[in-house]
Amino acid sequence: MAKESRSFAVIGLGAFGSAVATELARFGNQVIGVDSDERRVAQMAATLSSAVILDTTDEMALKEAGIDQYDIALIAIGRDIQASILTTMNLKMLGIGTIWVKASNKTHHRILSKLGADRVILPEQEMGRHIAQMLNNPVVQDYVSLGNGFSVVNIVIPERLTGRDLSSLGIGTGYDLRLLGVMRGTEFRSAHTANLVLEEDDKLILLGKRPELRRFGDAI
C-alpha cells in the first residue's frame, strides 16, 4: 500500500527551512512555504506546492492563507525570537495538529516547550553532537540516537576485515549489540544471511548502547 502523503507548512525559508521543505516535497508531500521575504518565496515557488509572502505573527493572515488546513507545521524562523513565539501561539490557536519549531537558544527552547510545541529543535547542537560522534570514532559513518542511551549506527568495514565471516565479529556474543543488516553498495543484506563473507566497504547497521558501540568500533 502506498504511503499516504501529508500536508506541511514550513514557515521561514532560510537555509534550514528551505532544505526541510525541499526534502518534504521530494517525498511527494503537499508543502506550502511561507516567508516575509519576497526573494526567498520566489526562489522556492517552483519547488513547493505553493509559496506565499506572509506575516505569520498575524493570526488572521495565517487563516486567510489556509495554513490551518495543513497537518503539520515547522516554524523555522531564524533570529526573530518574538516572531517565532507569536507564530507558535497563532498556530496553536488555529488548531494545527503537530507543530515543530526551530529554537535559537536554550531560553527560546524553554519558552516554546511551555507554549506546547510538539518538538523543539536546536539544529546546531544536534548537528554538533552528530559530528562529534563520527569524529570520535572514524569507522562510524552515520548514526541516529534513539534515546535512553541507544543508537543505530552505520559502521564501515575496514579493509583488513575483508574476507572474514560476519559471525567472527562477535556481534551478539562478544558485544552486546544487535545487527540489523548489512549494506553492500545500494543492496541490503539481511542480518540472517547465512555465512556472509565481508567485503571492503560493507556497512554494518548496528543497534546498541553508545559505550558498547564505541568498544566495538575501537576493536575493528
Rank of each mutant, 00 (worst) to 15 (best):
Q69W: 06
A65Q: 12
L86Y: 06
L74D: 09
V20R: 13
G28F: 05
A65W: 09
I72G: 11
I77A: 03
A45E: 14
L24C: 03
V101C: 08
I75K: 12
R39T: 13
D71F: 05
Q69T: 09
G28I: 07
D71V: 07
T22I: 01
G78W: 07
G78M: 02
T22D: 02
A83E: 06
L62N: 10
G28W: 06
L94R: 05
G66N: 10
Q82R: 11
T57S: 13
L62W: 11
W100E: 08
G17P: 01
E38A: 10
S50Q: 15
A15G: 00
D35A: 01
R26C: 10
A51C: 13
E64Q: 15
I67Y: 11
D80K: 05
A83H: 06
R40Y: 00
L74A: 07
T87H: 13
M89C: 15
L94H: 08
M89S: 15
E38G: 02
G33W: 03
A21S: 02
R40C: 00
T88Y: 04
G28R: 10
S49C: 09
V52W: 04
T98S: 06
I81V: 15
Q69Y: 05
G97I: 03
A21G: 00
I32P: 06
A83K: 06
I11V: 10
G97A: 11
L91Y: 08
T56E: 02
Q43N: 01
G78C: 02
Y70A: 04
I99L: 05
E59I: 08
R40L: 01
D68R: 11
G28A: 04
A45Y: 13
Q82V: 11
T87G: 03
E59Y: 07
V31R: 12
I81R: 13
S36W: 01
G95E: 04
I96T: 08
I32M: 10
D37T: 02
A9S: 04
A46H: 13
L74T: 07
S36T: 14
V10R: 00
R39S: 12
A65V: 09
Y70V: 06
K102I: 11
T57I: 04
S5Y: 00
S36I: 13
A46N: 15
